[in-house]
Structure formats: structure tokens, C-alpha cells
Simulated assay, not measured.
Amino acid sequence: MRTVPGSGPDPLEEALALTRRLKLPHIRRALADVVPTAKAQRWDPAEVVRVLLAEEAAGRDRANLHTRRKRAAFPTGKTFGDWDEAKSSIPRATQDALKALEWIGRRENLSICGPSGTGKSHFSEAIGQAAIEAGMSVAWFTIEDLGVLVRRHRADDSIARALNRIIRSDLIIVDDIGLLPVSPDAAEGFYRLVDAAYERRSVAVSSNLHPSGFDEIMPKTLATATVDRLLHHAHIVVTDGDSYRLAQATTGQGVKPFS
């Protein structure tokens, strides 16, 4: 084995310089603590290498997690950490099965529908956050975001390329369908997205309407074609009950009391 001789009087400084050259920022941050500890405890050289490489790997995992979460563009940061399983009308067995995320690996879809305030958006975002934690990539949209996408790319006819970038994500979430009539551009964008992802990626939607009623808010032809593809390989979850937000508001839990 060839040994590379040192070129400077301070091996630690040279090691730090090499971590910059080789783009190993997490090892660089760990060196100042690991080297004295290794000397004091007389670590085996292989242990020093293992600890430093483990620090680099863990640091890169944290950075990748941050990047995936930022790219997902979640609206609020809600997770299952602040989700009350017992209060949800979604059966516990269904919650557990969806949290396992195996359906995403099978490229199946998810439709969560029900009245406002029954946890649809929270559960959808929490599923997305769990997927991010599991190393997957996620994209989050409202249906009107898809209308903006269509308008932006219509001028140069680049919508297909834009959609191809989106469906690189393992899971695509479209939130809050059905509160308002859907604009023609948004209806087109929704159809194009579902069509592009069909049997290739998982799409999760949350809506006040059951998908069978999407023709109430978008052109019937587009609604039929969209729902046909969306529900072919889909889990349909229906929520019910009173609004969590209204319940908190009427009991004073929606604000911090004045002192």
C-alpha cells in the first residue's frame, strides 16, 4: 500500500485542508473533537476512521433530509407528532397501514375526502413528512398551484417537461380540492399531473368532495378522465365528524388566553 507523506508541520491542519478539498464538511467539524478524544483514549486507528466516516454519513443524511423537506414545500410543518389518532374518524388500522408507506412503493394513490376541519390536510401533510423521513421525495400543491404551472409553461409549450420533473417525486400531494370551483387551467393541470403520474408515482389528494363529485367543480370530461386514472389504484378514506377548528374555537383553545 502506498502511504501519502504529509507536507506540513501540523497534521490536523493538513487534515482540515484535505476535508475542504474533498468536500467533507461534517468530518471537518468533527475533527477538532475526535482527534483529542482518540489520543486520550488510545483508539485503534480503524475506530478513528469509522467515527469520522459515520459523522460524515450522518451529516449528509441530515442535509439531504433538510433539502427534501424544503423542496416538498409543505404549508405548515404538521407531522404525526401533533396528530391525535384517537380523535380522528379514520379507522386506526387504516391510519397504521397508510403510515407504513408501503402503498407508495406500490405506486398506489390516496384520496382523503370529508367535511372541512376533519383532519384531511393534517393527515396528508403528516404522511408527506413521514415519507420524507423515510428517504422519499415529496411534492405538495394546491389545485390552483397546478393552474399557475399550466399558465407559466403554456407560452413555450414546456408543461410536459415541468410535469416530468414533478413526477420524479415518490409522492405528489394535491390539497384542498373542492372548496371553490376549479379554474380551467387548474383543471387541466390536475388532469395532466394525474395522467403523467398514472402507474408511475403515487398521488394523494384531499378534498371536501368525494372524487366521484369532481364533475361539480371542473368540466365533466376532464373530471371523468382524471378520476378514472386517480381511483384505478387508490385507497379512499372518508372522514366525518365536527370540525376540529370549530371545536377549538368554541372552547377557547384556538387562541392563547389573555392574562
Rank of each mutant, 00 (worst) to 15 (best):
I236K: 09
V51I: 13
L22I: 04
S169M: 06
P181F: 01
L246W: 05
A30K: 01
I112L: 14
G189D: 05
V237A: 07
A38K: 06
K23H: 12
R154E: 14
R62V: 13
R2D: 14
S206V: 00
V4N: 10
T37A: 15
A162E: 11
S169Q: 12
S243C: 07
A30Y: 00
R192E: 09
E199K: 10
H66F: 10
L31S: 07
A249W: 08
S111P: 11
R168Q: 14
I132K: 01
A187P: 05
A234N: 08
S206P: 02
S243K: 00
P45T: 08
P219S: 04
T19H: 05
S169C: 15
D228P: 02
I132A: 12
S212N: 12
L101R: 03
S207R: 04
F74Q: 06
D84N: 13
R245W: 00
S259T: 11
S243T: 04
R69Y: 10
E13T: 13
A93V: 11
G128H: 03
G213Y: 11
E85C: 05
V174H: 05
L222K: 12
F123V: 10
S121C: 07
N164Y: 00
T250P: 02
G119K: 01
F123S: 12
V48F: 04
L171E: 10
V49C: 09
D195P: 05
S137N: 10
A155K: 12
G105S: 10
H210W: 06
Y198C: 00
R20L: 13
K120Y: 08
P11M: 04
A40G: 14
R201H: 01
S88K: 03
G189E: 03
P25W: 09
R2E: 15
Y191E: 12
A204D: 04
A247S: 13
P5E: 13
A197D: 03
G77E: 09
L180S: 12
G114R: 02
S111I: 14
I173G: 05
R28V: 01
G105A: 02
H235T: 14
S207C: 10
D33K: 11
Q41T: 13
A139R: 15
A93R: 12
R229S: 07
E125H: 04
D215A: 13
G105I: 11
G114P: 09
A63Q: 13
S7C: 12
V238I: 13
R201P: 02
K220F: 02
S212F: 03
G81Q: 09
H66S: 13
M136Y: 13
A30R: 07
S111R: 05
G59M: 04
F214K: 06
A97G: 04
Q41L: 14
E56P: 03
A196P: 08
A38E: 10
R62Y: 02
V34F: 10
N164V: 00
L16H: 09
V237R: 00
T239I: 07
I167H: 03
R2H: 15
P91K: 02
E188H: 09
G178N: 05
A40D: 14
G77H: 10
R50A: 15
K78V: 15
T79D: 08
E55M: 09
L163I: 00
R161Q: 13
S158A: 11
I112Y: 03
D33G: 14
V34D: 10
A40F: 01
A30I: 04
T221H: 12
T3P: 10
E133N: 11
S206L: 01
I104K: 03
P9C: 06
V4Y: 13
G59E: 07
E47Q: 14
L22N: 06
K99M: 15
A160K: 05
D82H: 05
R2Q: 15
